[in-house]
Nucleic acid binder design. Sequence first.
DNA 1: CTTGACCTTCCCATGATGGGAAGCCCTATC
DNA 2: GATAGGGCTTCCCATCATGGGAAGGTCAAG
Lengths: 145, 145
Amino acid sequence: MNIGQAARASGVSAKMIRYYEQIGLIRPADRTDSNYRSFSERDVNDLRFIKRGRSLGFSVEEITNLLSLWRDHTRPSREVKAIADAHVSDLRARIAEMQAMADTLAALSEGCAGDDRPDCPILTDLAAGPAPPAANVGDRAGAIS
Amino acid sequence: MNIGQAARASGVSAKMIRYYEQIGLIRPADRTDSNYRSFSERDVNDLRFIKRGRSLGFSVEEITNLLSLWRDHTRPSREVKAIADAHVSDLRARIAEMQAMADTLAALSEGCAGDDRPDCPILTDLAAGPAPPAANVGDRAGAIS
DNA sequence: CTTGACCTTCCCATGATGGGAAGCCCTATC
DNA sequence: GATAGGGCTTCCCATCATGGGAAGGTCAAG
């Protein structure tokens, strides 16, 4: 199986297959007489494993560990679960962060007319810093610490 | 004001200030006789603007546009709102994607004992592909297409 | 004058991915 | 058997925002 066929069969681009080989995520593929890489079904399975891992957001490094756990049939599931759970926490943390950004920005956009007038709270917020968390609207002691 | 002082005053690292100058996000800072960069209050304000923009997840390119809109007091708020709204959509899309990953992974982890036994649905899922959306548990026709 | 903290530029690395060039190989068609 | 087109090889470069570090100039305090 050529690299192109392996790519189509696994959904991993040929470029990335070479890259994964280069960084040691997969073992160097066999070569034909003419120096073409040659892939077995098993290699393709590994590539699919990698592909699914990536689509779940695992880093290549995490996948390295998962792959070796997968190959070692005596490994304790504890280790796998630990990697997965750490990754879930990580995802959730980043989600929360982005959610906060989106919320802030959506609120600012809400207050922006979006017409021909130049006035826009989005820019004033960027320029002046996050509005001090909604004190009473009538709060006139605008002292900025 | 030195670059170090500007960095402390703005929260942007000296390294990044040089980088922003290099890519043209900010204008080249004035120089002292000894070739040190010299920053004004106004420069620091720009840096703060950038910093806040970054913390809301805007790319440097988006910030370039926002900064020039900010400097142009005749700009229509429409343009600003458009940038912000596009960014919010972008954030939401990425959030949804990561949320799906986290959910999938959390569900798999749920099914993993996390003890000394090797059995773990996380790995089998990675190896075999996403489980076909929950057919009856008793469904025994394990044919894999 | 020395010391230490600061500044300058320049190069390199990250992580995962793609683009593209130069050159070899294979297969099908004429 | 020659030729064309597509696939393979390696190598280099770019992305995006950020940091590390080296080599060397500068400044201020002791």
